[in-house]
Amino acid sequence: MSIINPALERPELIAYFLGANNYSWLHFRNGEKKLLSKPISYLEGRLPGFIRVHKTALVNPDYVKSLQRPLRQKMAGKIQLQSGETFPVSRRRWNQVVQSLGDHLAPIGNEEGLRASVHLDEAHPMGESGSLSYQATSLFLVTNDEQNAFLARQIIGKNWPEYRVETLAKSIHLPELLDELPESELPALVFLDARSDALERLHTLQRLKNNQRLCRVPVVLLALPTDKSVIEGYERQANSVVTMKEGDMSFSQVIDRICQFWLKVAELPAHC
């Protein structure tokens, strides 16, 4: 018997859906997930109260914790769920998401407050034409270890203050997120921590390297110290594979040393 109708009758138990071609993963609030034989567009029609934040993600607004405005013009925003998971909000859906979440988010709690948070920082450097003008100033780190993410932001903020650090717990949406950026705003470097969720990270790595626009972005794979991990990383065209044990206390120092090479020694590709 199909589980689709019983599941949709209790939307309060649902956290979000992730589309996968003609199928969708249903993620419940209790952590369970089920594969449904329906595309995400079908589920969007059945659950008009849910919010399509990206072409592959449909979320329950009651399960949203925060909404982060785009850090630069033409960048995607981010939405964080109560579980801590973060998804990109595509540029073309941003205003609709802001409007839909107006009554759900605290502490802002109203559309006007949310819209006020969308304005770009006045300190961004501007070209003569008034458009944003700068080279790659961001680094992306994918890790589900919040402590390591915090340590990485600290060390990069201290030693590489010209770079902004974006952290994600999941990499599944990273190719779509980066593909929405103009060439000039692609990151200087991407870290994929594959010591956990290795299959997801390797799949993301392969998708990045198979993308004609994104393949030039250097990707460093953090892997467990096994021959298999190293081989799989290079087979999927990682620019570097760095091995570390899970729980390694020198995480921030390793990140800094990698930055020393890629941001100071290596010649990075220019983004037009």
Rank of each mutant, 00 (worst) to 15 (best):
C272D: 15
F87E: 03
T167G: 08
T137K: 14
D103Y: 04
K34V: 13
E12W: 10
N144K: 09
T56W: 03
Q212A: 04
E122G: 15
L26W: 10
W25D: 07
I255M: 05
H124L: 15
V59I: 12
L205G: 05
P11F: 04
F17A: 01
E111I: 15
V217A: 12
I3N: 04
Y63P: 00
P161E: 11
F140G: 00
S117I: 04
A57T: 08
H54E: 15
H104E: 09
N239E: 11
H124D: 12
Q80P: 02
P182T: 03
I40F: 15
V118Y: 15
M75L: 09
R46F: 01
D256W: 02
Q237G: 03
A123K: 14
M75K: 10
K55V: 02
S184Q: 13
L58C: 07
R72S: 03
A266D: 08
N210M: 05
Q147A: 11
H173L: 03
R29P: 05
E122S: 14
C272A: 14
F261A: 13
S129V: 06
L35P: 05
S2Y: 01
I255G: 01
Q96T: 06
E235F: 05
V165S: 06
P225K: 00
A7V: 02
E232R: 07
V190C: 11
E162A: 09
V98L: 13
